[in-house]
Each structure stands twice: as structure tokens, then as C-alpha cells.
Simulated assay, not measured.
Amino acid sequence: MIRFGIIGTNWITERFLAAAKLHPEFRLAAVYSRTEERAREFAQKHSIPHTYTDVEAMAASGEIDALYIASPNSFHAKQAITVMQHGVHVLCEKPIASNSRELGEMIEAAKRHGVLLMEAVKSTLMPGFAAVREHIGELGAIRRYVASFCQYSSRYDAYKAGEVLNAFRPEFSNGALMDIGIYCVYPAVVLFGKPNSVKASGFLLESGVDGEGSMILEYDGMDAVLFYSKITDSALPNEIQGEAGNIVIGKISEPVNVSLHYRDGRKTDLSRPVVEHSMFYELEEFIRLIKEDRTESEVNSLSVSAVVMDILDEVRRQIGLQFPADR
């Protein structure tokens, strides 16, 4: 059994725990919250034996082997480094950090203390994405990757009514790019590596974060065209275009429906069965790596996270989006 601690008592943690119940080697041992009341409330709901309001005390307790971090983005680096210094493995929600500087410090801490650090991007570890990686060679020369994740946020209604919730606050290193734009960028880097250049545009809200944006990543012989938004919806599918055919991905953040289309009209369904809770796959990968005494995923690798963060930094530079964490 791998004993897990949890930081974050929000909806994403609830989804993670629902997925974790499917894994026979997951054991929930501790929870951290800023207030004792909230920690106890969450612990009682999920039968968690230990509660903490101090991250370092939890890391030093000897009660956890690994930590799942789902706190606001601006807290990721400090919390991860704190626990890794005590030999605790870290599965950190995306985006793994506020910027490349923070991520560099996290990677250095992970290597210094010999622990596993992995960004919790579920999409690239799902069976459908594995099918994409296996069949992409059938497309011939790749010329374009197109990804769109535009999802109108209910929090935007609150924003327009005058209530600025965490999703639209720069002090938490939030906004459309960091929240959902990363789902478009991450698979591109896993599949194609570091781009030669980045061109970006975006719409900034008065709160200081972006509501939507787009970018073009230029590679040798191809480009990646990405759209993301928290203030509009889109029903566009996602596509990898090659000279011999194309792969269509229904939802870039959760690649379940995947199909391969050949130029001669043939079509192959690449969709694969998935478990009920799709966050299971990131947890499965993380636990497997711990059991194998490995400190890095081959898919959600630290080098992929570093390239993704460099891209996010450059996009933010071009559209004028700054966080307090950058200073």
C-alpha cells in the first residue's frame, strides 16, 4: 500500500479520491487544510485518520509516502519542495508550478532527495492517447496539430456579477491558459517536443488574468494551432493532420473517442475502454513508478513539464499576463 496525503479539499480532490478508490494499492492517510475545522470535516467524510494544518508537520510525520497536491497553483512549488525534502513523492495538479523558475526549483529538489515528482495531467496517460501514440506513424508526414478546449466557466457568471473567485485571480496564478489551455499544449509537447517558436494572442480580464487565447507552435515542417477559453464554449473536435491521413480526438482533455481516417476513405476506431473515473490513469502511473523505484514518468516526464512551462511563460509574456509569483 502507498500511503497518501492530500492537500486541497475542493472538487478536483473529490474526483481524484473517487478514482483512487479503484486502485487496490492506494491508501488515504492524511489531509492538510488551512483550518482545522475544514480538515476534520473532510477527514470525517473520507475516513482519513490524520489531519494537519501544517504541511511540514504532515511531511515529517512518517505517516505518508506520497502527496497529491490540488491547492491553488501559486502554492504548488512551496508545498511540493517542503514535502520532497522529507523524502515524500509528489503528484502535483496541473499546472505544476506558476512559472519555469518555480518548476526548476521543484525539479532540483526532487533530484536532490531522490523522490518521484510528476505533473497530474490525466489526458496523456489515458488509453485513448496511448492509441494516438501507437498509430500516429500511419499518418505519414505530420503537418498540423489542432487542439481546442473552450469551456464557459460558471465562475465567469459570478465574475460578471462582481464576485472574483479564485479561477480569475492572478495571485493564485490562474486564468484560462493555466487552467485549461495547458490541456492543449501538453499533448503537443508529448507528441512533438519543443517547438521552434511560439506566437500567441489573448484577451485579458480586468481582474488581471486571461479569459481566452490562442497560439501557434511552429515546428520543422508543421505547426500546432491551439485555442482555449473560459468565457466561451466550443464543440470543435481535435485533429492531427498528416499527408496520409488524420487522427480525430473528440476531447483533448479526455481522449476517449479517437478515430483514424485514411486518405482513401477508410476509417479505424481507435477508442479504447476506460474506467469510470478517468483520473485513475495518472494515479496508476504514479503508483507504478513508486513501486518500481523510479523518479520520473516516461510520458508525463519532467522534461515535458519543463517545455510546457516554458511555452506558458512565453505565451504570458506575449499577451502581457503576469502573476505575483513571477516577481
Rank of each mutant, 00 (worst) to 15 (best):
Q241H: 14
I12D: 03
V115S: 00
S253K: 11
T232L: 12
A158Y: 15
A97P: 06
F227Y: 14
V115G: 01
T53D: 07
A110E: 02
D54E: 14
Y281T: 04
G5Q: 03
G62L: 08
Y183P: 01
R272N: 03
K45C: 05
Y262R: 01
E63Y: 12
F323P: 04
V258Q: 08
A70P: 03
T51F: 11
G265E: 01
S71C: 07
V299T: 14
E56Q: 13
N300S: 14
V258E: 05
V308N: 07
S197A: 10
F149H: 15
S305C: 08
R34H: 07
E163S: 11
F16I: 14
A188K: 01
K78N: 14
H86S: 13
E292D: 11
H135L: 00
A110W: 01
R40Q: 14
R316W: 07
H76L: 11
M178Y: 10
S207P: 03
P273W: 11
E105Q: 15
G140I: 01
G208I: 03
F4H: 12
K194M: 05
N10K: 09
I252V: 15
Y156M: 12
V31L: 04
G242C: 03
P273T: 11
R294H: 11
D179K: 14
I290Y: 08
N166K: 15
